[in-house]
Design a protein around this nucleic acid. Sequence first.
RNA 1: GCGGGUGUAGCUCAAUGGCAGAGCGCUACACUGUGGAUGUAGUUGUUGUGGGUUCGAGCCCCAUCACCCGCCCCA
Length: 430
Amino acid sequence: MASKTSIQAVKGTREFYPEEMALRNYLYAKAGAAGQAFGYQEWDAPFLETIDLYAAKSGEELVKEQSFVFNDRGGDPITLRPELTPSLARMIAARQGQLAFPLRWWSFGPFWRYERPQKGRSREFFQWNIDLLGVSCPEADGELIAIAATFLKSVGLTPEMATIFVNNRRLMDAQFEAIRISPEKRLEVSGLVDRRSKMAPDAWESLALEKGISGGQLAGLKQVLGNYDLWRECEELVRLFKALAALGVSEYVKFDPNIMRGLLYYTGTVFEAFDLSGSVRRAILGGGRYDNLLGDVGGDPLSGVGFAMGDVVIGIILQEKGLLPAFVPSPAPVLVTVFDESLWMNALGLASELRAGGLRVLSYPEPAKLSKQFKFADRMGIQVVTVVGPDEAANGHVTVKNLSNGTQETVERAETFKTIVKILESAAER
RNA sequence: GCGGGUGUAGCUCAAUGGCAGAGCGCUACACUGUGGAUGUAGUUGUUGUGGGUUCGAGCCCCAUCACCCGCCCCA
């Protein structure tokens, strides 16, 4: 479509009109609440970093292909952060001796990745990151999964709608070894496992054979990937599921040997949440346990567990399921109308009196026909409208109308505040 | 980087190569001191952009841009 302006928004960015902003703030609030319920502290890192920070640790593609890099005016290369973990590692290493471990930190902010925008993926997105650092037991993994489940529940997603699938890298390594897949081949096999759910079974099997997996190994692999009781052979997972039961979130969590996760740094528990009932096939959130967080930034070994959730996928899912609260643009519950030019200052004064009492009050910015002002109030989701016309002004009165039921009363000006509060309270009760 | 699809009114979408339309919205009025309902009237276009074919192009062809869907990767 021809746009009115010739300047378009940058590809892959989203514009946040008040409705979208309300959704973003809603996700921020729910993510924050889930972490805070478990005693996590909010933190953040710079949005601009040097490319060197990522060169060491992150996946190759993420740095070389998917980062926004540019030179600043001094000629130094700057990267818009594509992920948070390297910044976390640097900040921890810098104060490793002073921080009180275990550390529980959460963050919610913007990230940039230069990739093709599509459903659930944009180039500029917001991501919730949450980590527990300095302990390495499976019960700690359980805490993070419980936080994820708490969040899913708090936004109205039931276990039927959203499930957290869990696996363990060490368990899978042992299984791969048992079917004689060499250590050098395991990365490739992990990728193969990742793709299995996206492919037709036949196509996947021929791809596996192409990649040099023997027929016997393929049979063994299929057996492993189909064994949903495999977790019983892994002490870490047995303990994890015991902890999840104690934390009361078992219904949200399932073992699945097909969950691998591409990132190299995961060493133990890995997990991903999916909505199996909707149209989005992407993970809502994903995370796991990593060792040696600080290895590349020069700190002492530190183990941690954490996960990340982007705002795009969860936003689509909540929208599709009608789980978003009514994000009506209601900037204030009260509108003070301006009857005509001679009563304009009267209206400004009334609005000011009501604000002094603590009400959020919008006053119509200029005199206009009352029907226009009422229509505006209706469209803005305003609950109460006041009118001071010549009659009210002459008697020191104010007419207060309740837009939700259409009733109105005329009261002494001094009683206006109380009358409005009563209407708002009775509306809140329902 | 690769493959597929779509661009028509503010929005959602119609229109055999032959006068560019509907619904919703918006504005006005009914209702000169009152929104949401209803009725009446009115309003809305460089058919993404640039070329080509044709007597004639929204429709066919080429290019280009934007967006969408998938692959890769991943939140």
